[in-house]
Design a protein around this nucleic acid. Structure first.
Lengths: 342, 342
DNA sequence: ATGAAAGCGCTAACAT
DNA sequence: ATGTTAGCGCTTTCAT
C-alpha cells in the first residue's frame, strides 16, 4: 500500500506538503497541489484512516445504539442513518441495547472507546440518565432524555392529524387504545387524541370513561383492548390506536365481532409499518419522517462535535398515510406543517 | 486520559512490560502483572484502540454489508452478528447495498479502507464477482458467490421438510409458488419441493404443468399466483410458497375464492417472518437458524483472518414452525438434522 | 509557500 | 523475565 511518503517522493515534494495538498490546505500552491494529486492518483493512494484518526482524533465514524434493529422503525432509522452518514464520509457502528440500560451503558463505553465522532442513541425505556461521557457528543433520537438534544417526530401533531381525519369522516365517539404511560411517545399521542376529542366529548355530553384503554403497543393488547371497546352496546364508531400493531389487533377484533371496517367501525394506526399495507382492509396510519429524523440527527451530532454546542431539540412533522379500504387503495397522504420546539 | 506510559510509571515498570502485562503476555511474572493491572485499574486506564490498531493492524471491527436491514431476515441477521461480535470484543460497521453492486463495491472499499478484520457480505442479486481485495477475509452469507466461503441455511432441506409436512397431512397434489430463477435460494427451495413431489406425481399420474408458478417473493405476486393455482377446477389441495409474503398473499387469494384454510386448502410459507404469527390463520412456515448463521459467519471470518484459510461452506438446518390454525396455536416445531457441504 | 521534525499511543523486535 | 527502542502513517507545529 502506498503511503503518503511514497506520494511525496513521487511528486518530488516533502511529506508535509503532500499531506497538506491532499487535505486541501490552501497554503499549498495550485501547481504543487496538482502534482501531488496526480502522484496520489497514479499510486492509487489511500490514506490510512487509523493513522489519520490517531493523529487528528477524528475517526469519521458514528455510533448508533437502538433498542432493537429488528423493530421496523429502528431498522428504518438505522438504514437512513447509515445512508446519510455514508454520504458525508462517515461509517456507522451499530449496537442493539435490547432495551437494557446496562447493555446500553456498556455499548456507550465501547463506542466512546472507539472514539466515534458522535453517538446517536435511542435510549432504552428504563434509562433515566446517560453516563456523562463528556468526550463525545450525544444526540438522542425518538425518546427524550433530559440533558440531551432530541430529534423525534411530532407525535402529538401526528395524533391530532389522525383523529381529525376521523372527525372529518364524521366520527364523534372515537375510542383510543393508548400506549404505556411511561413512554413519552405514547403520552404524546394520547395528548393529541385528547386535545381533538375533548371539545367534542364535552359538547355532546359523551363520557371519556371507558373510551380509552391503556395497554402495550403489541398486537395482542390491541386485540384485547378493541374487544372491550367494541363489545359494548354504545361502542365508539372509530378507534384511534397508538401503534399499527395495536390497530391490526383491533382489525382482528372487529372481524371477530362481525363488524366491517370501515363501514361499521373505522380504525387508525400509527407508524406506517410495512405490514399496514398488507393487512385487509389496508390500515390508515401515520407515518414518521424517518429519513428526516436520520438526516437531522446525524447533522446535529456532527455540528455538536465542532462547536461544543447548545442543546437543541427537533420535532418533525408526520404524514397521514393510506386509507381504510378493501380495494387496491388510492393512498391518501396528508402532509403536516413543521413544528419545532426548544 | 491515562496512557500506558502512565500505568507503567505508576507500577514502576517499563512501558514494554506494562503493555505485555495488559495484553496477557505469559512472559511477564505474575507479581508484576498484578502490579500493572492494579495501576491500570487505579488510573482507569483504557487502551487507545486506534493506536493499538495502527500498530498491530487489528481493528477488532467487522464490516457487514446487507442488501437492506429493513428486510426482516437481514435485520435479524444484523442483530445477531452484532451480538456475537460484541461478545468477542468486536464492533460491527453496518452498510446497506440496496442490492446495488456499485454501492456494494463502494462499501467494500470503504470498509477495507477502515481496515476491518473481516467482511460479512450478503451479495447483491446482481453481483457476479466481488472485488478481489485480498487484504481482508470475506465470508458471504445467505447467497452463494463462487470463490468465497458461504454460510447459509439449507433451503433445500427446509423445503423438503415443509412439503413432507404437507404430505404427512395427506396432501398429494401440492402446488408451488416458486421464487425468481436467478436467486439461488429460490432454486434450492424449488428443488426441495420437486424432490418430494416428483415421485408422488409420477405415481399418481399428476401433471406438474400448471402446478408451479415462478414469480417474485412479494405479497402481490403470491396473491396472483395463488389465484391462478386455486381458480382451476382441479386445484391442488395444498400450496407450498417460497416465501411468507407469497404465502400471505395466497392466504388472501384463498379467502377471496371462499376457500377455507386449512380445511379447503393448506398453505405453507418460508422464512418465519414475524408477520407469519399475526395473520389469520397463522401461517405454517420454515424458520432459518439465523443466530447460528451469524455465529458461524463471524467465527469463520475471524478464523480466516488468522490462518489464511481454505474455503469452506456451511449449510445450516432449518426449523418447521407453527401450524395453520385459527386458534391460539400450539406451535409445531420440527428440527432438521445438520447438513454441511464442502 | 515549503521543508524538517516531533509526536499521537501503542506493540514488537531487539537487547540484556 | 524485563527494559530499550524503533516505528505504524499520518498531521501539525516550527522553522525557513
Amino acid at each position: 500500500m502506498a503511503s503518503i511518503g511514497d506520494v511525496a517522493k513521487r511528486a518530488g515534494v516533502s511529506l508535509g506538503t503532500a499531506s497538506r495538498a491532499i487535505n486541501g490546505n490552501p497554503a499549498v500552491s495550485p501547481q504543487l497541489r496538482e502534482r501531488v494529486l496526480a502522484a496520489a492518483a497514479e499510486l492509487d493512494y489511500r490514506p490510512n484512516v487509523l493513522a489519520r484518526a490517531l493523529r487528528s482524533s477524528r475517526t469519521h465514524s458514528l455510533g448508533l445504539i437502538v433498542p432493537d434493529v429488528t423493530n421496523p422503525f429502528f431498522g428504518e432509522l438505522a438504514k437512513h442513518v447509515e445512508q446519510v452518514a455514508a454520504g458525508m464520509g462517515y461509517t456507522v457502528m451499530l449496537a442493539n441495547s435490547n432495551d437494557d440500560p446496562k447493555a446500553e451503558a456498556e455499548y456507550i463505553k465501547v463506542l466512546v472507546g472507539r472514539q466515534v465522532d458522535g453517538l446517536l442513541i435511542v435510549p432504552s425505556e428504563q434509562t433515566r440518565q446517560l453516563p456523562r461521557e463528556t468526550k463525545v457528543p450525544i444526540v438522542v433520537v425518538d425518546r427524550p432524555m433530559r440533558g440531551y438534544p432530541l430529534v423525534a417526530s411530532d407525535h402529538r401533531a401526528g395524533a391530532v392529524a389522525a383523529v381529525q381525519h376521523l372527525v372529518s369522516l364524521g366520527h364523534r365517539r372515537i375510542g383510543c387504545i393508548a400506549g404505556p404511560r411511561h413512554l413519552s411517545v405514547a403520552r404524546e399521542r394520547y395528548e393529541g387524541y385528547r386535545s381533538v376529542t375533548a371539545p367534542i366529548y364535552r359538547e355532546n355530553g359523551f363520557d371519556f370513561a371507558g373510551d380509552t384503554i391503556v395497554t402495550r403497543f403489541d398486537y395482542d393488547c390491541g386485540y384485547e383492548a378493541a374487544l372491550k371497546l367494541l363489545a359494548r352496546p354504545d361502542r365508539p364508531s372509530a378507534i384511534f390506536a397508538s401503534s399499527d400493531q395495536q390497530a391490526i389487533g383491533a382489525l382482528r377484533a372487529a372481524a371477530d365481532l362481525d363488524l366491517k371496517v370501515p363501514d361499521d367501525v373505522s380504525i387508525m394506526g400509527f407508524d406506517a409499518i410495512s405490514l399496514a399495507k398488507l393487512v385487509t382492509p389496508r390500515l390508515t396510519t401515520v407515518a414518521q419522517p424517518i429519513a428526516a429524523i436520520a438526516d437531522i440527527a446525524v447533522r446535529t451530532v456532527l455540528r455538536l462535535r465542532q462547536e461544543d454546542a447548545k442543546l437543541e431539540r427537533h420535532r418533525l412533522p408526520t404524514l397521514l398515510q393510506s386509507a381504510n379500504s378493501t380495494g387496491p387503495a388510492a393512498s391518501n397522504v396528508i402532509e403536516l406543517k413543521v413544528s419545532k420546539d426548544a
